[in-house]
């Protein structure tokens, strides 16, 4: 009986986390399209509901009632597994995101490593989908994304090391609290820029959306998918984008901390601040999509390996020597 009540409590907490995340994914798709339209002086989705807010729900309803087509020559098990993997990985990462000092589902010691691990597993959904479709365009998309995501993970990892040098802990709440006096975006600004661009590449967002470049590969790894399975890919992708924004907010923008430690600001709960920061980063993501043209593949690889990796490595050396020289290394 005691076990059961614990299980129920946890399930209750998980639902309270997951339902808002899923709803905000739907809303964020609408926001993405509106920002995109705004930049191009169009209206964007504005018919369904007030300001078109319910557009994503209408789309989801459409996907649910569409037929799921499984290609006859595909590898069926892996074909069905791929969207499930994408979606699951995008959602389980939210377990460690702290919404305030106490509001976190799993306050584990190695929170940032967990986030990094889960985001690096995200590539499997794409590879599995591309390979199992047994068709040329999805396969090319899968191969491209495998190389791309592995390359940019490297620089994200090194950037995380930069932040960890200043914090001295792998716990996400410790990382947030370490930014009490100054957000890391100020001393580590170049790293923030590189993190943002790498996050674009890691989530296959334009200008790095080569795995699904519609001009070359139809829709890349998701060409053969239809109906609800396509929708799951799409949900997982946007949940991943939100996750990357959350990661950026926690690593560089002070997470759930209010920007100024003054009376009226501290009244607002941490979750609101975190959501505002995620939204800010997401609007930047959406603006980049509207403004920047797609990279060529060799340019993408060059940027990852020859520019970002050396730069962030040099910055690790700089940060470490600065902290060591001025005796600022966090010791506990």
């Amino acid at each position: 009986m005691e076990y059961l009540s614990i299980v129920f409590q946890e399930v209750y907490k998980i639902l309270f986390l997951l339902v808002p995340v899923l709803v905000s994914v739907a809303m964020i798709v609408w926001l993405d399209r509106r920002v995109w339209a705004f930049v191009q002086k169009r209206q964007g989705p504005n018919v369904v509901g007030p300001f078109g807010l319910l557009q994503s729900l209408a789309d989801a309803l459409k996907y649910i009632f569409k037929e799921i087509i499984i290609p006859s020559s595909s590898n069926k098990v892996i074909f069905i597994l791929a969207p499930i993997v994408t979606m699951t990985l995008a959602l389980i990462a939210w377990a460690v995101i702290p919404f305030s000092a106490t509001q976190v589902l799993a306050d584990i010691n190695v929170g940032i490593l967990y986030l990094f691990a889960v985001s690096s597993l995200g590539v499997y959904g794409i590879i599995m989908g591309g390979w199992a479709s047994n068709s040329k365009y999805p396969f090319l998309g899968a191969i491209r994304s495998a190389a791309q995501m592995v390359s940019y993970e490297v620089s994200i990892g090194v950037i995380i090391i930069n932040v960890l040098l200043c914090v001295g802990s792998l716990n996400l709440n410790d990382i947030v609290i370490a930014q009490q006096n100054m957000w890391f975006v100020i001393p580590l600004f170049p790293m923030f820029v590189i993190f943002f661009i790498s996050a674009l590449a890691e989530t296959n967002r334009p200008p790095f959306d080569l795995p699904e470049a519609e001009a070359e590969l139809v829709a890349g790894y998701q060409t053969e998918y239809s109906g609800m399975m396509y929708a799951m890919f799409w949900l997982g992708e946007y949940a991943n984008i939100l996750l990357m924004c959350a990661m950026g907010a926690i690593l560089f923008l002070g997470g759930w901390m209010s920007p100024i430690d003054v009376y009226p600001f501290t009244l607002i709960p941490g979750a609101i601040w975190l959501i505002l920061k995620i939204l800010l980063l997401f609007i930047l993501f959406a603006l980049v999509k509207a403004i920047v043209p797609r990279y060529r593949y060799d340019q993408l690889m060059r940027l990852g390996w020859k520019v970002f990796l050396p730069l962030s490595l040099i910055w690790v050396v700089l940060t470490a020597s600065y902290l060591f020289y001025f005796n600022l290394l966090p010791v506990n």
Binding site: S120, L121, V150, E153
Partner: peptide, 10 residues
């Protein structure tokens, strides 16, 4: 976690 990142992720 390192096992996940290094072996599975890369």
């Amino acid at each position: 976690m390192i096992m996940l990142i290094v072996y599975v992720g890369a």
